[in-house]
């Protein structure tokens, strides 16, 4: 698991180049793995974290132990954002293709931005088991937006 976290950080660092990234960050919190209900927030566990980077054209790539997703960021004037995405999901039942929707709100920005998000996922494994994990996280973003 530590290697997965290293990989996530390496990916974030790579795409954080000012020329490429518009926004990048990491969020951690509570994760529901499709086995009844979510666990309490565990910031010590790498599996709770999600790293993402958003390009200038609003394309968003999200990496976590439970998913690899590509989506599009829709920013509202109210500092809320929505990210519909599709990719590969995993939860307690297995893994397979699926979709994700992330609903977030940015609290404030001062060099870094603090935000919270609710993320839901829906997919299916090849054996037709449901992949329906979800997460509630708080995160920190770096953005080079002027």
């Amino acid at each position: 698991m530590r290697n997965i976290l290293r990989l996530v950080f390496a990916c974030i660092a790579f795409v954080s180049l000012p020329a490429a990234a518009y926004r990048t960050g990491i969020a951690g919190g509570s994760l529901g793995l499709g086995n009844g209900h979510s666990n309490a927030a565990d910031f010590a566990s790498p599996i709770s974290y999600r790293g993402h980077f958003t390009f200038k054209n609003k394309l968003d790539v999200s990496l976590a132990a439970t998913h690899v997703l590509v989506g599009r960021v829709y920013d509202f004037k109210s500092a809320a954002f929505v990210v519909p995405a599709a990719g590969y999901l995993a939860d307690g039942n297995g893994s397979g293709p699926g979709v994700s929707a992330t609903f977030g709100f940015t609290f404030f920005c001062w060099a870094l931005c603090l935000y919270s998000e609710f993320q839901q996922q829906l997919g299916a494994t090849p054996s037709r088991a449901l992949v329906s994990g979800y997460a509630v996280r708080v995160g920190i973003d770096y953005t080079n937006e002027k």
Partner: peptide
């Protein structure tokens, strides 16, 4: 603790 029940 950010723990939530979930239905979708």
């Amino acid at each position: 603790y950010l723990a939530f029940g979930h239905a979708q």
